[in-house]
């Protein structure tokens, strides 16, 4: 599979390492050149495209048209939303997006009802874990 990742932060770099290890083809789009170079050193692979992943031309250059999966994992919901908008417009790839504000999930859901964007909110995951912990804990009286 060809996976396109936008955002070369911690999540992006660990994802790349794991996906490459599984034999997938991966390209990471990262705005900061220094960060991109560090990533290449770390991964010992030429997998980065330096540029703004919210720019349709940069995504096209990175291979958006032939991508099977696009992962929007920058730290900003608005940037991830734009990555999904461009992907939905220009390719048939499966979209996965990181969403910080759980409320924003609804907006990502509204982009494509047939082939919905998969959203992952760590805020929500933690909230769920707390909720489970609280409900599982014996009530002390």
């Amino acid at each position: 599979m060809f996976v396109l990742i936008v955002g070369g932060g911690k999540v992006g770099s660990y994802l790349t390492r794991a996906l490459v290890g599984q034999g997938h083809e991966v390209v990471i789009v990262e705005k900061a050149e220094r960060k991109a170079r560090l990533l290449e050193q770390l991964l010992e692979r030429n997998v980065t495209v330096v540029g703004d992943g919210c720019d349709p031309l940069v995504l096209e250059q990175a291979g958006l048209k032939r991508a099977d999966v696009v992962i929007a994992d920058t730290g900003d919901d608005e940037d991830n939303l734009v990555v999904c908008l461009i992907t939905k417009k220009n390719s048939t790839a499966k979209c996965i997006a990181r969403v910080n504000n759980p409320r924003n999930k609804l907006i990502f859901d509204s982009l494509d009802e047939k082939n919905p964007v998969t959203t992952i909110s760590s805020t929500e995951v933690i909230l769920d874990a707390i909720h489970k912990h609280v409900t599982a804990a014996p009530v002390s009286s």
Binding site: C54, E78, D79, V82
Partner: peptide, 12 residues
């Protein structure tokens, strides 16, 4: 001053 913020706010 951010295009991405503006489109997201508009979609909300």
């Amino acid at each position: 001053n951010g295009d991405n913020r503006n489109v997201m706010a508009a979609l909300i």
